[in-house]
Design a protein around this nucleic acid. Structure first.
Lengths: 364, 364
DNA sequence: ATCGCAAGTGTGTGCGCACACACTTGCGAT
DNA sequence: ATCGCAAGTGTGTGCGCACACACTTGCGAT
């Protein structure tokens, strides 16, 4: 039996509700509501008193009740490349889907906006569409950095928060970034490739481009990290750049036959995007199993080449976690007003034949 | 303007509520509620009709509203070793805490029950306590397997679901397991240690025991996997078992000095629990940087030894994810009736100097 | 002197569901 | 013929909050 007036000495684990706040401050729940949601129209005295009470009792709104009562629905736009099954961005989508299922409970829905990652104009057209669309927050893949930057300026003006995935653009006012350090992902690849490699061995750097697009910001950063590692570890050999084609196996074979003929000391190879299966296919066909090969991303074709022992190691960046956390961070912001950490560098995973079986995209 | 009676042709995205079900089945919401919660006391005709409607419209209860209305609070017991800061189980606790914060929204609370992982009787006393405690589900660390097994029989009788973490005991009726394959974690360690090692090199196997306890089930499995890998890769050297002590550096140094003196061809070392920093400390003091050393778990002391280049690689098992998903899976079961996959083998992470900075326990 | 209006304030309703409680019906026992 | 009781069934309330709406107060303009 406790008296009714000692509101503040009661069970500290009991939840404090808006009605309790109202009673303590001597106002109605509507006035408390106005303060909580900064709707204005509250006298200075009441504002101060209510804020004081909110502070003192550490008021935590019941998000369940809030969500049920408000019915407010938020839309999170997800702007990423379209993909076919088994491609890199399919794993990303798996994370989005999981986030979508969880966020729905809080009246947050996801709308997807896809573009062709090999076609800049497709991205530009998408941005044009987004200018006319209405949404409350956005997850942006930063592949076309020079187009993303001005667009974020528009979002800033519209007051729409956004987070980046895939690679960071620190010059933008993004609420958060979820992804790996591309530079250090390059360092890791170098370590995996170079470890215990005899001095003077050469390394092939496979550049696989598409329709003449320049390499992505992310690939450039990885290559910087890679070269940085070599520079710090007295790598005595040469890096042999080679241009390969996405769809022309015969042409690639000729190019590589020629390269390997001219450089018999090649002991390793690397690609900085997710297409190392191309180099792997060549090495397998020529039975060059002594050549170490390191690439990026757990896409199906890379996975197979790794399992067969042709690829030495893959460096991966948890795309499903990027997708999941990208959406959920915005959900938390919209629903609870919780601001995420601004830079979230995800782990740079090392995958080899012996552990790849356990890296599947259904694990968040 | 749509007519009121065509309930089933209306907007398919509209949420179907209990009142809608009731109207379609020609009963009250209470009767629908009885069917949904299997409370009985419903005539066969109504039961069939309501179930038919539920099925047809794919009724999904609004968990938000359910949680708000029921006020039902579930208790998840978490039974794990006590720990000091920087120890392995502290990372596990980080995942528990994150899950706790999320689960609270659905009226699920976590109660922790700790034991001394080096003291079997402490675990037995805890089980005695748990027999008298009331909880709705449990997360169990399986360190003392032979004590866990009979206890789960009691839980089965009490109808309390439980999940395992750390290592699996497939013979129990656990609802799920979250953790790594200990066997394959041993395989991975062997791969990391043995890769490109000259044939005939010897490897030290450090056994660090505490108060005479036998090694854990998990450590034994890892060692099995390790030896299996070596057997399959014509390892020509010897495995040199050595007993080390947790608290006696001088004694360990004498033991190891003696071992290294007798076996000059030692090229590698491994431990199967999280105390490889002990071997690392020895190797650092003797400047044996050429000896490769592989161990388990990202605890603070191992992290330092890895960053300094003394430990070659660590194999890790995402304890924070084990804790998080262990709790959340039970939360989903209690609140939504969603049954988790029974075996959830988490990735076996490979950590080296170049990527360890990004493995921190605040990342789920 | 009255009116319009801005600034404040409170009441009441509903979000979808769970569940207490009251109630009806029909059958077997007396 | 009435009663007790089990089996069914429906009404009403509240979970904590958001917000529409009605209302009051006081001041400046006319």
């Amino acid at each position: 039996m406790r008296s009714d007036h000692d509101d503040e000495t009661k069970d500290p684990t009991a939840t404090v509700r808006i009605v309790d706040i109202a009673r303590m401050a001597g106002v109605s729940t509507a006035t408390v509501d106005r303060v909580i949601h900064r709707r204005g129209k509250v006298s200075a005295g009441n504002l101060a008193r209510i804020n004081e009470v909110l502070e003192r009792v550490h008021y935590r709104p019941n998000l369940i009740a809030r969500s049920l009562a408000s019915g407010r629905q938020y839309v999170v736009a997800v702007v990423t490349p379209r993909f076919a099954e088994g491609e890199y961005w399919a794993d990303f989508e798996a994370g989005i889907q999981r986030a979508e299922a969880e966020a729905r409970r809080f009246n947050v829905v996801v709308r997807r906006f896809g573009f062709d990652q090999y076609d800049r104009s497709s991205f530009e057209r998408l941005l044009e569409l987004l200018r006319r669309e209405s949404f409350d927050a956005a997850v942006l893949a930063t592949l076309f950095a020079e187009r993303v930057v001005p667009f974020t300026g528009e979002l800033d003006r519209r007051g729409i928060p956004y987070v980046f995935v895939d690679s960071d653009l620190p010059e933008c006012r993004r609420m958060a970034y979820f992804g790996t350090s591309s530079f250090d992902a390059g360092v890791v690849a170098a370590r995996l490739l170079f470890e215990r490699m005899e001095a003077g061995a050469d390394i092939v750097v496979g550049n696989i481009r598409h329709r003449g697009e320049g390499g992505s910001n992310q690939c450039r950063e990885r290559e910087r990290g890679f070269r940085d590692y070599l520079a710090r570890h007295d790598f005595g050999g040469r890096l042999l750049d080679v241009e390969l084609r996405l769809d022309d196996e015969a042409c690639n074979a000729r190019t590589l036959d020629d390269l390997f003929a001219r450089h018999p000391s090649i002991a390793g190879a690397v690609t900085f995007n997710s297409t190392c299966y191309i180099l792997a296919g060549y090495l397998a066909s020529r039975r060059r199993s002594e050549v170490r090969l390191v690439g990026y991303d757990v896409i199906e074709r890379n996975r197979r080449m790794l399992s067969e022992g042709i690829v030495t190691a893959l460096v991966a960046q948890r795309p499903e976690v990027q997708g999941y956390r990208g959406v959920m961070s915005l959900c938390a912001w919209l629903v609870e007003g919780v601001r995420p950490a601004s830079v979230n560098n995800l782990p740079i995973d090392i995958l080899v034949k012996e552990n790849i079986a356990y890296y599947t995209n259904n694990i968040i």
